[in-house]
């Protein structure tokens, strides 16, 4: 082994530790019997997970988060399909610039977007509720949806569509029988990523939520009560595991979408 590759390995290893070690503290303390979040550990318990079952405000926040996550990921994916389809198949003036604007939330500070949306909604005289959060999250997820759907549509060989038309199908039949099944893995990936992003999004939800809080906003509120910290840790652990599973699934679908290309050609 050369000296430089040894250093590189060391660097990569340290990097991963810094990235993930803090997240690993979450599950460790959620199983710790002490109320105080500090080493040394005092004992193993499921108690904090049990307390999760008895908090009705938490259950409501979870329900709200699920509504928001499902609605915004579905909405963003539908819009993403439409935008990507037009971007990959048709040429029109202003295509590049409108794509850039749709992708902008990727780099815009969320707090700015949150405040801006709040001002707009207030000016329009709309009340804040879960649907305003859905709109905000859709805006946030759209860039991810578009990027995923773009690669799915780019992998689609145009002669497949022509072949379908040639064999007697109209535009709609072709979309339903050929295009949709072939971009399906991309759609799944987009839904899962959108769901995950929305589920743990805090800033926009914080600004746009009315009386119905979402899960991250609820967690933030819990930090005022030091006694409840271990329970929050337990909740955090569950969210971490859920996000990990969802992201792995979405990566699986995304790769399947890419693989389907090699079989086409």
């Amino acid at each position: 082994m050369t000296r430089s590759s040894k250093y590189l390995k060391f660097f990569a290893f340290t990097y991963l530790i810094f990235l993930y070690a803090p997240a690993l503290l979450l599950p460790i303390f959620s199983f710790n019997s002490s109320q105080i979040i500090a080493f040394p550990l005092t004992g193993f318990t499921f108690h904090w997970f049990e307390t999760l079952l008895h908090q009705s405000t938490l259950h409501e926040a979870l329900r709200n988060s699920l509504i928001v996550a499902v609605s915004s990921s579905v909405l963003a994916t539908i819009l993403g399909i439409l935008a990507s389809r037009s971007a990959t198949r048709y040429d029109f003036t202003g295509k590049q610039i409108s794509l850039t604007f749709i992708l902008a939330p990727l780099v815009l500070p969320e707090i700015i977007v949150g405040v801006a949306l709040l001002i707009v909604l207030m000016q329009l005289g709309l009340s804040l509720n879960l649907w305003s959060v859905v709109l905000g999250h859709t805006l946030l997820i759209m860039p991810f949806s578009i990027l995923i759907m773009n690669s799915a549509f780019n992998n689609l060989d145009i002669s497949l569509e022509e072949a379908s038309m040639d064999l007697g199908e109209n535009q709609f039949g072709t979309f339903y029988r050929i295009i949709l099944p072939l971009v399906f893995p991309g759609i799944m990936a987009s839904l899962l990523i959108g769901f995950t992003l929305s589920l743990d999004e805090f800033i926009i939800a914080f600004f746009l939520t009315g009386t119905d809080t979402t899960l991250p906003v609820y967690i933030w509120a819990q930090f005022r009560f030091p006694k409840k910290l271990p329970t929050t840790m337990a909740l955090g652990t569950l969210l971490l595991v859920t996000s990990f599973i969802l992201l792995s699934l979405s990566e699986y679908f995304r790769r399947r979408a890419v693989n389907s290309r090699s079989s086409v050609l």
């Binding site: 060989d157 002669s159 022509e162 072949a163 038309m165 040639d166 064999l167």
Partner: peptide, 17 residues
């Protein structure tokens, strides 16, 4: 194309994968 009395064999065959 879907209403023409023609059918086509494509260069890359365009078999639905």
């Amino acid at each position: 194309p879907n209403l023409r009395p023609t059918n086509m064999v494509f260069q890359n065959y365009a078999i639905f994968p």
